[in-house]
Design a protein around this nucleic acid. Structure first.
Lengths: 232, 232
DNA sequence: CGTTTCTTTGAGGATATTCAATTTATGTGG
DNA sequence: CCACATAAATTGAATATCCTCAAAGAAACG
């Protein structure tokens, strides 16, 4: 990937929004490329956080695991998403493990290099706060759901979040453009894969969703999901 | 409160860590004072976020309410805590409502004024990211608990978090230095006040905690709570 | 001292989990 | 391309955890 290509990527990354042309060039030159094969993990929960990452392309799953082996899927990430920065800023170990669910390309900046960029281009800092703030709201929403709502509503909300984040219009509805297992949906919804399976089966009956196994999920009736997610 | 007093407060606020003397003065002068009576709400969920706040003294409870009236207690806040900033940065309405549980003093900065300060003192931005990052980790931990653990463990974790955040050594253990109702504990733990009541009753039997009604909770055996919170 | 608010306790029941057994995909090697 | 092995999903039945509702008791407040 040459500098021009990097700039093309970087200029669409929310973190670097508001930077002009020469600035983007400086940012691009400071980046290292880090390809990640499908299934691989660029780093692991508990390791020291030394690099900031941005996903250039490909998709990544971010998991948090408890000491006793239970897993929470925090989110899926795609092109333009920020990875690991919060831990770097805080000087703490990574709180979660990313796993590539497709072949990916990451761009990496060392803590020091990134600090220099932030000093030169203060807008990066405000962008970072905005992004991290968005994650807070997302987490608060999920916490509220987990705390107050039943599985069916939560699952509807989970699917709608995924649609909002990565959904693609296709004939017959909106598609989630990568394979998601019941287990993964369960880990995002705070439930078990069994309950997810049953719920999706019921929705399939009603024609709300479709898509088996490794094929992509298609939401045929998003409005029904919204209804379920918001039902009193 | 004169400027000197303000500086005294501000220099211990994590957000302004790393600022030197003349800088602190500038920050202090730009602040407005906003007293809040016990029970009052400086703003409400859904309102436009125009001011950044820092708690100068007093305690505040931060709640998020669902459209159907259910409530999640996000956290308690005290001197030095940042309030509302995430929403201001994002240009979004406040996602939660703060309520003073004691008479409080807030310091307020307008969005514009604060942006100027951040421009002059870039360290404020990095501090903000660190602080907001800390909240993310807190929320992730709570989400994981809510998703994977039973009430007893979650309640233990909730109490330990409160101890860590605001606990005070007293004879016979550690005290949470403000009154917390069962209802509030339930809203922090994603359960009902009934279950909290039963669990605390059992713990009181074992001598792990003590404190009735409006008296402050005392954790006599924090190590036992840790055990419960971490039990496989 | 009465009223209000918070807390306790009990009983019953619902939601969702757990566990086990099948069925259905996927993909790998022959 | 098929057969087999592996992984994912389905489905059912039993059970556990926790919630809901009701009623009574205790503490706070004016």
């Amino acid at each position: 990937m040459d500098t021009a290509a990097r700039i093309g990527l970087i200029e669409r990354v929310p973190l670097f929004q508001g930077l002009g042309m020469p600035d983007l060039d400086a940012v691009a030159r400071a980046a290292r490329e880090r390809p990640v094969r499908k299934g691989d993990r660029p780093f692991r929960q508990g390791e020291d956080a030394i690099d900031h990452y941005v996903v250039a392309w490909g998709r990544i799953r971010l998991d948090q695991t408890t000491p006793d082996g239970q897993n929470v899927l925090l989110r899926f990430m795609g092109a333009g998403d920020l990875l690991g920065s919060v831990a770097v800023f805080r000087g703490m170990p990574f709180p979660a493990t990313p796993t590539a669910i497709e072949d990916c390309m990451l761009l990496a900046w060392s803590a020091v290099g990134f600090a220099e960029l932030m000093q030169r281009f203060p807008v990066i800092a405000t962008n970072a706060i905005r992004i991290v703030g968005g994650r807070i709201e997302d987490l608060q929403a999920r916490l509220q759901e987990a705390a107050t709502q039943r599985v069916e509503r939560r699952l509807a909300a989970t699917l709608l979040r995924m649609v909002k984040q990565a959904g693609r219009r296709v004939e017959g509805g909106v598609e989630i453009p990568f394979a998601v297992s019941r287990q993964e949906l369960a880990e995002m919804t705070a439930t078990t894969l069994f309950t997810v399976s049953r719920t999706l089966a019921a929705w399939e009956q009603e024609g709300i969703v479709s898509g088996k196994r490794s094929s992509h999920l298609v939401i045929a009736k998003p409005h029904r999901l919204v209804q379920i997610a918001e039902q009193a």
